[in-house]
């Protein structure tokens, strides 16, 4: 028999070792998240999945569930924090949805829709970032990187390649690739790599596929992200 905790008043069962996120997902309850994918080790950097446990904020993707926990997630207080975090990610990079080929399949955008984000207040940083179109099958648009490091993990832990890494510090943190030239073409990245499938935004893009599915008919055009389980992202 498994133990239970409550999430927004709903009783959730969990098995020993499960995180709150995992247990909630199994129970069909959506907690917003960007840097978490079920098949990779959670690291808790985006903080979108922050919940309140017994009155204290913590990342639900890294916190193990314990019997009797009282967890709050879908409250106005927490969702307002999440909207601010979303907005931080938007202003930190250059996220121009109308010009982005991932629009409609983008988790950042879809999560913002889910949270009803529509009142910007922070000033934009407009960082100078580059694109890398050197690879025959993949191009990289660093303007949209949210530093979730899912590609770093997927390349290292699934592909066994270490194509990606994080560099810099603080607001100057950035994604880099594993080559002397700094170009993706000079790495051993292949379009079939797991790392090419996990980007929640529009950084790692497969060439010649951009508009196969028209805008308006994409994953999160059809259903809100809260109703789309994580796995279909692979087939995007």
């Amino acid at each position: 028999m498994s133990d239970t905790f409550t999430l927004d008043g709903k009783t959730i069962s969990f098995t020993e070792g499960q995180t709150i996120m995992q247990a909630a997902t199994d129970a069909g309850v959506y907690i917003p998240h960007l840097c978490y994918l079920p098949e990779l080790k959670p690291h808790g950097s985006c903080k979108l999945c922050t919940v309140k446990i017994n009155g204290r904020e913590t990342s639900s993707c890294t916190m193990r569930a314990a019997a009797g926990m009282v967890v709050e997630s879908d409250t106005e207080e927490i969702n307002s924090q999440r909207r601010a975090l979303i907005h931080m990610l938007f202003v930190e990079g250059n996220h121009l949805c109308p010009t982005c080929e991932v629009s409609g399949n983008c988790k950042l955008q879809a999560t913002a829709y889910h949270l009803g984000f529509m009142s910007p207040q922070f000033d934009h940083f407009f960082p100078i970032r580059r694109v890398d179109a050197s690879h025959p099958d993949i191009w990289l648009d660093f303007n949209r990187c949210i530093l979730c490091s899912l590609c770093v993990q997927a390349s290292r832990d699934v592909d066994g390649k270490n194509v990606f890494g994080l560099s810099g510090r603080g607001i100057k943190s950035r994604l880099i690739v594993n080559s002397k030239s700094g170009k993706l073409a000079d790495t051993d990245m292949a379009v079939t790599d797991k790392a090419a499938q996990v980007c929640p935004v529009g950084v790692i893009l497969k060439k010649r596929t951009a508009f196969k599915t028209p805008i308006g008919e994409r994953t999160y055009d059809k259903k809100p992200i809260s109703e789309v389980p994580d796995t279909p992202a692979k087939e995007r």
């Binding site: 938007f90 250059n94 996220h95 121009l96 949805c97 109308p98 010009t99 910007p120 934009h124 407009f126 100078i128």
Partner: peptide, 18 residues
């Protein structure tokens, strides 16, 4: 009220900010 992407995040015109 800000209406549209250009008003609320600059949109296409901000490409020149690069």
């Amino acid at each position: 009220i800000a209406i549209g992407a250009c008003a609320y995040n600059g949109n296409i015109p901000v490409y020149r900010n690069q």
